Simulated assay, not measured.
Amino acid sequence: MKANRAHIKDLLTAITRVFTVSSIIMLIWLSYFWGEKKSSLNQTNIYICGTSVLGSDYYLQYLESSFDAGNFHSDINILLDKIYEHPFIKGARLSHRYPDKVILEISERVPFARVNSGPDQMIMLDEHCFVIPHIEQVKSYSVPTLSRFNSEPKLYPIGEKALSVKIKDTIDWLRLLNQNHPDLYHNISEIFLTNNDEINLVLAENPTKIMLGNSDTHYKIDLLRAFEKTMGNKKNITDFAYLDMRYNNQVIVKE
């Protein structure tokens, strides 16, 4: 009987020792695991998607140069505040992917027209008349040039809407044209107003000049497209030097 009790006592002692050692090992492992996770949270990987104008690398460099790592890791949401400060950003949102990924989805302002403000000086606008920087990455965009408009710099604050009323009206006009006749919009090289606020278009091909006058201009565009159809495959509007549509229901052309 005494032998059995001694055996049980030795067994309990062994089990206690094994449990104690296992607990210590588990605590060490948990400490190491938490340390790794904490470290990974402080080394967040940022993924940017949705870019169509400037690449994701451009925005990553912008963010990295905007604040130091300490400020960034203290509050990941400052990413949104900082990215919204960039004049090309129209919208953005953040989502987290455990444990160390942050997905930054952005929507950019796309160049839609440029204002001619002098030799090698252009002011870029999006389709809602927001002023965006005319940087190297967008200089190759083929968009209509707005000439003979007031190009005073104070009327075009970067990241905000242009203040010129005529520019706003012209951008609205172009946006509707692009919605209804995108092929014609993409063929416009230049658009300018006369002293009587008559709209003149200069097409990229040849170039052909289209004089629309200052009233019912979108109706006249529809009339122009109907005129194109009547010519069939015999001619294109770019075969003419100009088309004068300032008069009601008339298209006067010069070859």
Rank of each mutant, 00 (worst) to 15 (best):
M1N: 09
M1K: 15
L11I: 04
L12I: 01
T13P: 00
R17G: 07
V18N: 15
F19T: 08
V21L: 13
I28A: 12
F33S: 14
K38L: 08
S40D: 07
L41C: 14
L41G: 14
T44Q: 14
Y47C: 09
C49G: 15
T51Q: 11
S52G: 08
S52A: 12
S52I: 09
L54D: 08
S56D: 15
Q61E: 09
Y62K: 15
S66N: 12
H73P: 03
S74C: 08
S74G: 01
D75R: 12
D81H: 06
I83F: 08
I89W: 08
I89M: 11
K90H: 10
K90G: 09
S95L: 02
H96M: 11
Y98F: 11
P99A: 11
P99N: 13
I103F: 03
I103M: 01
I103E: 03
I106A: 00
F112L: 09
R114I: 06
R114V: 09
V115C: 01
N116D: 15
S117P: 09
Q121N: 01
Q121F: 03
M122N: 10
I123W: 00
I123R: 03
D126I: 05
H128D: 15
C129P: 12
F130V: 11
I132P: 01
I135E: 00
I135F: 00
Q137H: 10
V138N: 04
V138M: 05
Y141S: 06
R148M: 03
R148E: 04
N150L: 00
E152F: 11
E152S: 10
K154P: 00
Y156N: 02
G159E: 13
E160C: 12
E160G: 14
A162M: 04
S164G: 07
V165E: 05
K166P: 01
I167N: 00
K168Q: 13
I171Q: 11
I171D: 14
D172M: 13
D172Y: 10
L174G: 08
D183N: 14
L184Q: 14
Y185H: 14
S189W: 00
S189G: 03
I191P: 07
I191T: 07
I191W: 06
F192T: 12
L193I: 02
E198V: 02
I210V: 04
S215G: 07
S215W: 01
I221S: 03
D222K: 13
L224P: 02
F227W: 07
T230Q: 02
M231F: 03
M231K: 08
N233Y: 01
N233R: 10
K234R: 06
N236Q: 11
N236Y: 11
T238W: 03
L243V: 02
L243T: 05
D244E: 03
Y247N: 11
N249V: 02
Q250L: 11
Q250N: 10
V251A: 07
I252K: 11
K254D: 07
E255M: 14
